[in-house]
Computed example of a mutant assay.
Amino acid sequence: MELRQLEYFVAVAEECNFTRAAERVHISQSGVSAQIRRLERELGAQLFERSARTATLTTAGKAALEHARAALNSAKSVKTAVDEVGVVIRGELTVGMVTACTVTPLFDALSLFHRAHPRVEVALLEDSSDRLVERVRSRVMDVALVGTAYGPPDDLESILLIQDRLVAAVPDNHPLARRPGIGLAEVTSHPLVCLPTGTGIRSVLDIACRARSIEPAMAMQASAPDAVVDLAARGLGVAILSESMVTPRPGLSIAVIDDVEVPATLSLIWSVPASPALGVLLTHLRHAFGS
Rank of each mutant, 00 (worst) to 15 (best):
S111Q: 15
L125D: 14
L3I: 03
A177P: 09
A116H: 11
A22Q: 02
W270D: 00
L278G: 11
Q163H: 08
S213P: 04
A168C: 09
R53S: 06
V146R: 00
F289G: 09
H114R: 14
R139Q: 15
L285K: 02
V10R: 01
L112E: 12
V187L: 12
V78Q: 15
V272D: 11
W270N: 04
H67N: 12
A232E: 00
R20Y: 03
P153Y: 05
H117F: 10
A277K: 10
V167R: 03
C101R: 01
I89W: 05
T80N: 14
V103W: 10
P276I: 03
G183S: 14
F289C: 00
K76I: 01
T94N: 11
A123P: 07
L160H: 07
D172K: 11
A224H: 14
P180K: 08
V12G: 00
Y150L: 11
H117M: 12
D259R: 09
V256W: 04
L125A: 08
D108M: 11
A177R: 09
R24D: 02
G61S: 12
R212G: 10
V246L: 05
A52M: 06
M245T: 02
H114S: 15
L3S: 11
A70P: 01
A227I: 01
G44I: 10
F113Y: 14
L47Q: 03
L106M: 13
A224G: 05
S242I: 07
G198W: 05
I214N: 03
D142K: 14
T188D: 12
R179C: 10
V25K: 09
L266C: 05
G251H: 07
G200N: 00
